[in-house]
Amino acid sequence: MNLDQKILRARAKEISRHKIKQDDMAESLSVVEFLLIPERYGIESKYVSEVLSLREMTPIPGTPAFVAGVMNVRGKIVSILNLKLLFNLKERGITELNKIILVRMDRMEFGIVTDAIAGTLKVYPNTLSAPPANLHGINAEYIQGITPDGIILLNGENLLTNKTIIVNQK
């Protein structure tokens, strides 16, 4: 078996897999996958307005620790949350290499600090498994389920409507 045949075979395999995915497209969810090292998370694309790089974030004093600061996104001031603190993960500091996912539902919009954006993928809801009962730290209401790949799929609606993350302006 020479090198060309190998390459051809690998390519054929790839194409056949895409076919299967395209067949089930109607029932699938489009999910943006991101990393909160060491875990992989996902959020449905319908809640995501935009992904962008972290630029000139201004910390706001007097806010809870999970509020990293505010950022100017094309003339719009958006607050940025650090989910690691919210999910009691190990904080490793924020740099300009971190990416921001702007999430939005109705009038609620804020950014989430991620370590990296992995990309978009299709998730079939019937393949999701319930979050494990011993999942400590993360409030179970934020989690929609866990994909067979081990991606924790966040519940965007709960996350965006949660009162705990709204800072009181009194």
Binding site: S30, V32, S45, V48, S49, E50, V51, L52, S53, K99, I117, G119, T120
Partner: peptide
């Protein structure tokens, strides 16, 4: 990022 945004 643009690609991701485009995908979204």
């Amino acid at each position: 990022l643009l690609a991701v945004n485009a995908a979204i």
